[in-house]
Nucleic acid binder design. Structure first.
Lengths: 212, 212
DNA sequence: GCATGGACTGACCGGTCGGTTGGTTATTCG
DNA sequence: CGAATAACCAACCGACCGGTCAGTCCATGC
């Protein structure tokens, strides 16, 4: 008589447990015994379905990327003007990150932990997809003259995505900073960040030619 | 009979080896044996100077933060107008991150790996110091009316620092993206990013085409 | 009825982990 | 000098690691 979280096939239970544990603690800190316990299967059974720990990790990462990419695909970006599309994309991206905190942590961890090796391809894949999508939005706007011709769309895309990732990554830290008021509200953060990227932080009338 | 890399006291050799290895591989992946070998001391000697692995890690992190904070303290921010100061700060911060890649990785890793526990205080300390310094620059500018009154300095600070951290973190990944041209040049990146934060990406009200 | 084969398990393996022990130098000080 | 103490080390410990193995269970097809 399986307990509540069980009931599905062993493989998906293993993958789910692995995703949770790897995301929480990292590759090395999670033992196969721990995964087996969490998935309510025997350790040997994990090795029956996955060749070794590395392969399980890879499979976990791959599944995470697939789900994450699928979610990104669903982003609606067709309607509205350039500014709205950018704002909506940034907000949706941040929401996606926060909704899939485990997956985000997993991918972020993989990015950090591995030199040139192991599963970086998946991280590149999911990151690249997000990135390319955003660059495309920006390119369209630039082609229409809705944004400056002399900015690099890739750079702006990286700034938007990067600031979202930073929000996710450092939220727990700057939550305690007295200067920070937006730690609890990703919507506020996203709106303000996009506003900066769109309009800059200088006063409106001002131009930038005082060089020295 | 110390070999070439030795010669200094064992403690600093241990700390240096630990910093390098922890930064490269993370807490769990580094064994005390590996640190002992790298520092050219016996493992037992490490336990003579540090109570256990956790304490060594904490000491390593603390030393890293001290050196990083010291470097930040040296940032010259007194001269020049607001725009120059911000640009210089961002560039110096990024340079600092890249120069101390080991320390940066160590702190970033700690941020990611630990829930509420362990050495987070140090990360908060070094991050908080950087952050407060930048917020101060922005506040001064805002007080003088050199930047919009309706932007949150803390948010802008987070965007600048966050985009630098993202650059460091994901450089290896987006280096292979076709859209990205700035992966090899932190100076270019920093300059362009500050430009966006200052002026935004929308076209100006009037015709303006300039360098870059 | 029974052979086949995938799903699954408890017991176990060699090896490495963090940490300890008992003892040997090196240094300091009365 | 001798004694005390800090610095240091080889050898060792129990625990746990990733991984294996012999064997059980059970659905399927003949």
């Amino acid at each position: 008589m399986p307990t509540e979280t069980a009931e599905r096939d062993a493989v998906s239970r293993i993958l789910e447990a692995a995703r949770r544990l790897f995301a929480e603690q990292g590759f090395d800190a999670v033992s196969m015994n721990a995964i087996a316990d969490a998935a309510e299967v025997s350790k040997a059974n994990i090795f029956h379905h996955f060749k070794n720990k590395d392969e399980l990790y890879l499979a976990t990462l791959k599944a995470a990327c697939v789900s994450s990419c699928a979610q990104i695909e669903r982003f609606d970006q067709s309607a509205g003007g350039f500014e709205q599309r950018l704002a909506r994309y940034a907000a949706e991206h941040l929401q996606n990150i926060l909704d899939n905190a485990q997956v985000t942590r997993l991918i972020q961890r993989d990015l950090l932990e591995n030199g040139p090796q192991r599963g970086r391809q998946f991280a590149e894949q999911v990151f690249g997809q997000t990135f390319a999508r955003l660059v495309e939005i920006l390119r369209v706007g630039q082609r229409r003259g809705e944004l400056r011709q002399d900015v690099d769309p890739a750079l702006v895309a990286l700034m938007v995505i990067g600031s979202n990732l930073t929000f996710f990554q450092a939220r727990e830290v700057f939550r305690h900073f007295p200067d920070v008021t937006f730690a609890e509200s990703p919507e506020t953060y996203s709106r303000m960040a996009v506003d900066i990227v769109l309009h800059g932080m200088l006063p409106r009338g001002r131009t930038e030619n005082e060089r020295d």
